[in-house]
Design a protein around this nucleic acid. Sequence first.
DNA 1: GCAATAGTGTCTTTCAGACACTATATC
DNA 2: GATATAGTGTCTGAAAGACACTATTGC
Lengths: 234, 234
Amino acid sequence: MSDLDRFPKPAATVDLVLMTMRDARLTVLLQQRAADPFVGQWALPGGFVRVEEGLDEAAERILTEKARMQGAWIEQLYTFGAPGRDPRGRVITVAYFALLPRARFDAAMEATDDLALAALEVPWQGETGGPIKAVSASGEALSLAFDHGDILALAVKRLRGKLDYTEIGFALLSDRFTLRELQDVHEAILGRSLNKPAFRRRMLERGWLDSTGKRETGTGFRPAELYRLKSRKG
Amino acid sequence: MSDLDRFPKPAATVDLVLMTMRDARLTVLLQQRAADPFVGQWALPGGFVRVEEGLDEAAERILTEKARMQGAWIEQLYTFGAPGRDPRGRVITVAYFALLPRARFDAAMEATDDLALAALEVPWQGETGGPIKAVSASGEALSLAFDHGDILALAVKRLRGKLDYTEIGFALLSDRFTLRELQDVHEAILGRSLNKPAFRRRMLERGWLDSTGKRETGTGFRPAELYRLKSRKG
DNA sequence: GCAATAGTGTCTTTCAGACACTATATC
DNA sequence: GATATAGTGTCTGAAAGACACTATTGC
């Protein structure tokens, strides 16, 4: 181990971009900082990587410990390591997606109270370069700690890129979902409305979906058919 | 700094996937390991991240120090941090692309002699899940140290994804290039042949290219027109 | 003129967008 | 039947693939 300890080491953390869909909007979990630096500002849940655990493993642990949630779609996003990003010292953070259906999200929210949800104001399609606005339930823009605004901006940009050729979008929906809900996910992430017949055609022809034969309930109008992602377990 | 030092820290390194195009094949720079672990096997050039430097900065420095090259397209690829990936202890490595045109690559190769080039055997299009074969100039497959085979596989997969909607492919070509050379880059990365008229149409209509009015020389047949990427400096 | 590749014209096929239509649930 | 949304049929237009053709260079 001698070689590895010759230089002072940066600290390694994992931060989670914990997202779900609420009212057809992309929503992220934030935690208000109780201590310096950035007291009172809003931050992504995160924590140190332990020496004995892998990065994905650390993300899972932080999901459980800090947000009391489980079974999310965990996927690495990007690693942020600018020397000045944490005023306490050198910290390299590996940012992760943690995507969940709303139901599991809500259940965990009720059990804790130091967390808050923020709707993401997704800029109109055409590069998500600028920082993204996170808006609280009451409508004010939240001030983000560290470089977490950059992390959110990159998260949306990456989601946009992967949405159409991976199954990542389904991670924001429950096990059973309607095509309209799926379209809502795509529209919220892309920041524009999509053509209904074309969207349905594309999704159904892709072969990822199984129709369940069941339908929504309690709609007050014609209920939509519920679909399921093929590769998921029932 | 007290908080940051409560736990033992993993070491942080940067590894470079240093690529260029040679003879219409994607080629990567490897270094034969002189010491344990993995003596004699082939590894990506890499080094520790210093506490005062950013990650991109570390990648630039390693490019200069280990490979004696400059002016590459530097872009973060992915962070690998499985606990067992380095037998000496916990090492988290941030893998980077470092893409260069062949000319600058060759010049640096002549100045050093502990480095080797390996052609990448890109599997046929349709997910680059499996490990990629790196083949030496004499034709044998090289045995890769650490998880560097995984890193190479992910590099090709990521290149494939970004090739069509970013300018990353141009980083493998000189300042002036023909459409045939550009098509070679795309074919080498995608692992399949492309339709010539469609490829030309797409590239020219995209508006990224400027025609220089000049042509290749010394071809022995009709020389192709040389183009330049608009956003680059002359 | 020959060889070899650059570069193009055009037909076909595929697929996304538009839009109007039909279907079906609750009330 | 009224309402509101689910779901479809079909036309149009944009762009990719196929393929054959013409153009231009060195020899």
